[in-house]
Amino acid sequence: MTRDTSSQGPVFQAMANRASQSKVTDEAPTHEELRDLMSVLNSVPDHSRLRPWRVIELRGDDREVLGRAMAKTRDMSTEKGIAKATRAPLVLAIVVSPQKSKKVPYWEQEAVASGVAHYLTLLLAEAGWGTMWRTGDGTRSKTMRKAHKLADGEELLGWIYVGGVPETQKKPKPRKPLKIDEHLTPGL
């Protein structure tokens, strides 16, 4: 059976159209809308179906807690840290929550959590929300662990900032084409 790989279906189009939005409006998906989008994250490739991840939903004052932790870990003023953390009405902290397994090493579980983050940004973009993946030097600091109330063994991967897409940013900047031959190697 031959497959039609030239087809540009909805997943292809969603990926082709996804772009980071550094500036967003004060609109954000509701908790229920977020739950609905996250309901399909069980399709992320996950060896042994461990689901070694979780997402922390930060809104309102929770973002100020994040901002104070950012200020402390990045040697900046509290005001600047809070300004950074409140750039979007919703911030999703992506956490690797590794499960004990003799078959699945930590790095593979971290890859699953990373996959969750990328699927989630794609789902949010497809639903019409602007997203931006952010990390930083302090992501895995003791201060951030405490601020996010991480359990022993958990690690913070970063944050997805989520908000409405301003009318002025509807069209993403054109991307440079991918040089496929530099990234796809035929055989060994």
Score class of each variant (00 low, 15 high):
R134N: 11
L188N: 15
P45H: 03
W107T: 00
T143H: 02
A117W: 01
K176E: 06
S39V: 02
V91G: 02
A16W: 02
L58Q: 08
K179T: 09
Q21H: 15
K176V: 04
L50C: 09
M76I: 14
A83C: 06
G81Y: 09
R140F: 03
E126A: 15
W107Y: 10
V104M: 10
S20Q: 11
M15Y: 06
S20C: 08
E155A: 10
D61S: 11
L50P: 10
M38L: 06
V104I: 11
L184H: 08
I160Y: 03
A88M: 05
M132S: 10
A16T: 01
S22G: 13
H47R: 09
Q99G: 04
L178I: 15
S39P: 02
K142V: 00
Y119F: 15
S7E: 13
L34G: 07
R68L: 13
E79H: 03
G158H: 02
I94C: 09
L122D: 01
T78K: 15
I160Q: 03
R18V: 02
L41H: 00
T185H: 14
G153S: 09
R140S: 07
R74H: 13
L184C: 10
R134G: 06
H47K: 07
P186W: 14
L58K: 03
E79L: 07
T86P: 11
A28T: 04
Q13V: 13
V95D: 07
R63V: 09
G136K: 15
G136T: 12
V104H: 11
A127C: 04
S77M: 04
R140K: 08
H183D: 03
A113H: 03
W159V: 00
H183R: 14
A71F: 04
Y161A: 07
T139V: 15
P166I: 10
K146L: 06
M144I: 04
G81H: 06
E154F: 11
V40R: 11
M1P: 04
P105Y: 09
S141I: 01
S20D: 11
L123F: 13
E155Q: 12
H31I: 03
A127Y: 12
I94N: 10
K171C: 05
E167K: 15
L122G: 04
R51F: 06
S22F: 03
S39W: 04
D62T: 08
P52A: 02
T30K: 01
T139I: 07
P10K: 06
S20T: 14
Q109S: 03
V91H: 05
G153F: 05
K103H: 09
E32C: 00
W107F: 09
M15E: 01
P29Q: 08
A147N: 01
G138H: 05
S43Q: 14
P172T: 05
D36S: 09
S6H: 15
P174G: 02
I160C: 00
T121Q: 13
G81Q: 05
R175N: 12
H148Y: 12
L122I: 10
S97Q: 12
V91C: 05
M76R: 08
E155V: 15
E126P: 09
V44M: 13
M132H: 10
Q21S: 08
G9S: 13
T78R: 13
E167P: 05
G138A: 07
Y106L: 11
G138F: 06
R49T: 09
Q13W: 01
E155M: 08
E32M: 00
A69W: 00
R134Y: 08
T25M: 06
R140G: 07
K80S: 12
A16D: 08
L41K: 05
G9D: 14
